[in-house]
């Protein structure tokens, strides 16, 4: 992960050999060759490279008489309202998530309930699962058709259970994929039933 270090404020280390290159080299368009390993590097530096924002530590102002106070700290002056629940909070309680400011309680709820989009780091895509479980085994399942007894119901379950579950952050719920998966799952069960009947008719003594 750490391929070019942040050793110095105005230099960038070559990702391959670690040679320090001046940040000015990347201010204009075009590529730069590392003088040491000859790696071709293209890049851009941005204002934050030259002036990294110092971390702001705010403990919150003490409340005077008549001031609105923080919901969590009686003695602190309210600095803003939580953008999720509306509670007044002080600067100490303010949690920044992207461009939004929420209180610690909403942050906790968001972490548990997968409710704050900015905090979601992974998601199971039920509609994709249904689609894959519904159609992938059909490509190979004819050879090992008893496998479809498992994958067919799995596809139906994924399609129905995941119908109201949150979908992909970028592509949404994709109900069409769930419907296709459901049809694939039903198709698999029909196929298993048909193959079973064929075997039963061919070998009735078994």
């Amino acid at each position: 992960m750490q391929e070019f270090s942040t050793a110095s404020a105005s230099t960038i280390a070559c990702p391959r050999c670690g040679t320090l290159l001046a940040g000015e080299s990347f201010m204009s368009a075009g590529s730069v060759n590392c003088p040491s390993c000859r790696s071709q590097l293209t890049g851009r530096v941005f204002p934050a490279f030259w002036s990294p924002a110092p971390p702001e530590v705010q403990l919150g102002e003490a409340a005077m008489e008549g001031d609105a106070t923080c919901y969590f700290h009686d003695g602190k002056k309210a600095a803003l309202a939580c953008e999720s629940c509306g509670r007044f909070i002080c600067a100490l309680c303010e949690v920044r998530i992207g461009s939004r400011r929420v209180c610690p309680t909403c942050l906790g709820k968001g972490l548990k309930g997968d409710k704050i989009a900015e905090l979601v780091t992974s998601r199971l895509c039920w509609s994709n699962s249904a689609l894959l479980a519904g159609w992938l085994p059909l490509l190979f399942g004819v050879v090992v058709w008893p496998l479809l007894v498992i994958t067919g119901p799995a596809a139906i379950f994924a399609a129905l259970y995941g119908w109201n579950k949150p979908g992909s952050l970028t592509r949404g719920k994709r109900h069409w994929a769930a419907v296709l998966g459901l049809l694939g799952g039903i198709g698999q069960l029909v196929l298993v039933l048909g193959m079973g009947l064929l075997v039963w008719n061919a070998y009735p003594h078994v």
């Binding site: 070019f4 530096v45 780091t121 992974s122 699962s129 952050l169």
Partner: peptide, 17 residues
């Protein structure tokens, strides 16, 4: 079956190489 997300805020990106 699943997706993994990583976010990089515009205001925090110092350089792209």
């Amino acid at each position: 079956f699943s997706e993994r997300y990583r976010r990089f805020y515009w205001r925090e990106i110092e350089a792209v190489l």
